[in-house]
Write a protein that binds this DNA or RNA. Structure first.
Lengths: 200, 200, 200, 200
DNA sequence: AATGAATGAGATTTCATTCAT
DNA sequence: CATGAATGAAATCTCATTCAT
């Protein structure tokens, strides 16, 4: 009985999160009202505050909740791959797939989360670190077997790689200068990372 | 006389823009108040409205203005270099120098890309396009002389490169996971872009 | 059966009233939430509305109920005393004893008199009148037998006495300027009332 | 110029305070809206927040502001009186005069200030202490010249006296059980305090 | 041109009350 | 009877913008 109620409660919380993703993606975090989210979720304004401390908390919770799933998705995809190069390629492809399959969520992650000092500065994000460190681990292994350049700094490279694919993805979402498909984006990004620019 | 007055006027406008860069970079566009900008600029709230139509206009003007300067700086640095590879390396080093000398500058890119929601979604910043296209031009030339991989998509690569160095710079500013110097950042970034990860 | 259920019902109602006295005394009527009272009473929010029409009604019921008990306690203490002076002294000592044994009780008077605004301005608490009139009756008897000053207005004096001992008690509870024991408070108050300030 | 502007500013602040006194007296602090006060003061809602941090601050400022004047009034009245008994009598008469001449203010002091734990508990009020100590000083002098009972505790008596006259005044304002004039109230209170109840 | 006090629309948040379970 | 999740009206407060000086 209690578990059922718990389940119902969880369902409503998720409904609100889904609504928030949609609304924040469309209007932006600051431009969107709590009322908008409530309406989209089909609940009363006050109900939001039964599940989240305030509007900021809604954004943070949204992030935590979704990020957990994303990390799982990565781990799932990588767990049977041993070659670091394959791992890296898979990582990148999964990344762009995630973006493609949930554009709205991506919009929130890519655009909205960034604009709040809460996330970029104050709120030291464990999940984000986890994410970066997934890349670092792959790079370290690649160096160990002499596949990757030994003088390459994995600490810088993990950020480099994240920044690169993140931006390619963002511009695809914003649809500005980006007149390319996700597939192209993934493959080109792979090549750029692995081979670099040089032709030789 | 009129030109002098014009100059004074221009000076105040710039003072406001500098203040806005600082304040928006620090607090974010929505979290920052017009009052904050006014205070930082040492003018009255109302004065801002003599130079800018509204808060949004201030943000847009800020981009245009700053980007123009940044572009000039790049052009200056690149004008005597003919080799595309040298151009690219110079571009990257100049970029990190700019960031190092004006930390808040990176906020301009930040803001440009991340405050996008609502009104910026449509607003297409020509200057930012110009910036990206500077990279593209270098890449195209490199391809033409068979220095860069022929199958590399310059349109994606320009974004890829911008994203990569921008993120490495940003993490350096935030000082979080980034325990590296600007010099290292620039060199590692160069190598990553040019050589890629592979050791061979 | 019905009577037992009645008793149980009564018990819960009292539990809510006790909780309300505590909570209102501590946080003030307007600052306290119905939820607070419910929690303190160990019932659900909605349960309160099975016993009281609304929050206002809870406050009013609280007075009536508590005052009835207080009056009973006084009547019990006074019933075998005939001398008005002894009656008055006893009244005062009982008052301070009541306060000492049930600190929150003073909140009842507090609330009664100070939360008056709006709805309580009209609401005339009969029990409180009864309480004041107990004092008046003692004073009248004292005048009748020429013990108390004939020109003394019992109507004013009853309020005077109530106000004096109530404030001394309240400051004792707050423990601010009041660095005295309840016993001292009672005795000093007695003397002040009976003898006045003059030394002769 | 600056002083004139300062004066205008001060005037508006006072206008808001006057309005707040009126509104709070009539509707009670919690029942009254900031909007009500703004309307009564003839300013916009937001204007209130230019002069006061928040609604609570308005109440506190009101208290501080008015209390200062009241204390001055007392000092003025007492400064040429040397006899402690006369001082005490004057004090009491001035007190009731103040109440009579500004009923609304009294309402706020008497009823509204009391109901907020902010004032009774958290906010240790210097002005209120000053006020109580005025009484204490008179009492001490009266004891020194053997006019007042030597065993009388001035620390308790000051609270006793304050409570007594405060309550007599409050009931006059509430107009409940108090069917007496302010003049009677003052004289009866004086006699009660000075002579006590006994006839002798 | 510059100021900054004033405005008031609008956003977030609270909480008494209801009602399906 | 009891519950407590849900409601939504209403209150406080913020802040971009205006305008008299």
């Amino acid at each position: 009985m209690a578990s059922k109620r718990e389940a119902v409660k969880q369902k409503k919380k998720e409904r609100i999160i889904e609504a928030a993703v949609k609304v924040f993606a469309q209007k932006g975090f600051y431009t969107a009202n709590v009322k908008d989210v409530a309406q989209a979720a089909g609940v009363a304004d006050g109900t939001i505050y039964l599940y989240f401390k305030n509007k900021d908390d809604l954004l943070i919770s949204l992030f935590e909740h979704k990020m957990k799933n994303i990390l799982l998705r990565f781990e799932e995809a990588l767990k049977d791959i041993s070659d670091p190069l394959d791992q890296l390629k898979t990582f990148i492809h999964v990344y762009f797939e995630l973006i493609e399959n949930d554009t709205e969520l991506s919009g929130v992650f890519q655009v909205e989360l960034r604009q709040s000092s809460k996330f970029l500065k104050d709120y030291h994000n464990q999940q984000f670190s986890n994410y970066l460190n997934m890349i670092a681990r792959i790079l370290d292994e690649g160096k160990k077997i002499n596949f990757f350049r030994p003088e390459m700094d994995t600490n810088i490279a993990k950020i480099f790689i994240f920044g690169a694919i993140d931006e390619v993805a963002r511009q695809w979402i914003l649809g500005r200068d980006a007149k390319y498909s996700i597939k192209e984006a993934a493959e080109q990004s792979c090549d750029n990372i692995v081979k670099g620019l040089l032709a030789f």
